[in-house]
Design a protein around this nucleic acid. Structure first.
Length: 117
DNA sequence: GATATGACATGTT
DNA sequence: CAACATGCCATAT
């Protein structure tokens, strides 16, 4: 039985499945309402690839600078920002979330409260 | 094809 | 709760 991974679904030479997956990731992230968050795993699962949390992260890393995607609403399963604390990226994400009303306590937020279901 | 890497997740200690 | 270990999988070298 073939595994449920984008790579295993490359029936055509341009690997459409991977591109569809990336598009789905963008769409899911856009669906996160202001003031709410989702984990990398949540996004992957919502796209139909529950074991690709890391891939979601790698996609976000390659986001073009002009992208309008609310990437800051994606955090890890511990309710923490996946950047080294106090790095520029960390501070930026923290600032954006805070400005949306997401409360951080000891570098962590309450997923029970802010997670977008 | 073997190894290393990473904006991850989950279970165990 | 924190630290560790293990699993995961696309990408890069």
């Amino acid at each position: 039985m073939r595994k449920n991974t984008p790579q295993s679904a490359q029936e055509n030479p341009t690997s459409r499945a991977v591109q569809d997956f990336v598009d789905a990731i963008y769409q899911q992230i856009h669906a996160i309402p202001l003031g709410k968050v989702a984990t990398y795993g949540d996004i992957a699962k919502a796209c139909g690839y529950p074991s690709h949390a890391r891939y979601v992260g790698s996609v976000l890393k390659k986001l073009p600078k002009n992208s309008t995607i609310p990437w800051h609403r994606v955090i890890n399963s511990q309710g923490r920002i996946s950047f080294p604390e106090n790095s520029p990226a960390y501070l930026k994400q923290h600032a954006r979330l805070t400005s949306e009303g997401v409360l951080f306590i000891n570098g962590r937020i309450r997923l029970k409260q802010y997670r977008h279901h």
